[in-house]
Computed example of a mutant assay.
Amino acid sequence: MSLHLIELPIALRALHLWAGHRGIDAADEGLALHHLLGEAFGPAALQPFRLLVAPRARSGTLYGYARVDAETLRLAALPVLGPSETEVIRLDALRSVPRPPETWVTGQRLGFDLRLRPVVRLASALQGETETGAAVSLSKGAEVDAFLAAALRGLPGSREAIYLDWLAERLAPAAELEPERTGLASFQRSRIRRGGRRLEGPDAVIHGTLRITDPAAFADCLARGVGRHRSYGFGMLLLRPPQRPC
Rank of each mutant, 00 (worst) to 15 (best):
R228H: 10
W104H: 03
Q108L: 10
P118G: 14
T182R: 05
G225P: 04
T61N: 07
L116H: 07
E169Q: 13
E200W: 04
L177A: 00
R115I: 13
D25C: 07
I162T: 15
R109M: 08
E176T: 13
A123K: 11
C246R: 14
P9A: 06
A142T: 10
L138Q: 08
G60V: 15
T213A: 03
R99S: 06
G154K: 07
S137V: 13
L3W: 08
K140C: 04
D113K: 13
A32N: 12
R170C: 05
W166P: 00
L167K: 01
H34A: 08
G227W: 02
P83F: 09
A27M: 03
T213W: 01
E102S: 15
G128K: 09
F187K: 12
E85F: 01
S231Y: 07
R170T: 06
E143G: 07
G196H: 01
L199Q: 06
I24Q: 02
A40K: 00
P100L: 05
H207Q: 12
L52G: 13
S190V: 11
V53W: 03
G42W: 02
A93N: 15
P118R: 08
D203C: 04
A70I: 14
R181K: 03
C246L: 11
L37K: 07
A93Y: 06
Y65F: 13
D28T: 12
G111L: 00
Y163K: 10
P48K: 09
R230Y: 03
L94V: 14
R99Q: 14
M1S: 05
R211T: 03
G235D: 01
Y232I: 13
G30N: 06
R191A: 12
S137A: 10
V105H: 05
V68C: 08
R13V: 11
L81Q: 15
V120I: 04
I10T: 12
E180A: 14
I212G: 01
Q188T: 15
A174S: 02
L238P: 00
S190L: 05
E102V: 15
R193G: 04
A175K: 00
A77I: 13
G225E: 04
G20T: 02
I89H: 00
S158G: 12
P242K: 08
S186V: 10
G107M: 00
T182N: 01
T182H: 00
H34K: 13
A135R: 14
R197E: 13
V120E: 02
G235N: 07
L238K: 07
F49E: 01
A161T: 13
G233N: 11
V68E: 09
R13A: 14
Y65E: 12
D165T: 15
H207G: 08
I6Y: 01
R90V: 15
R194G: 04
D165L: 07
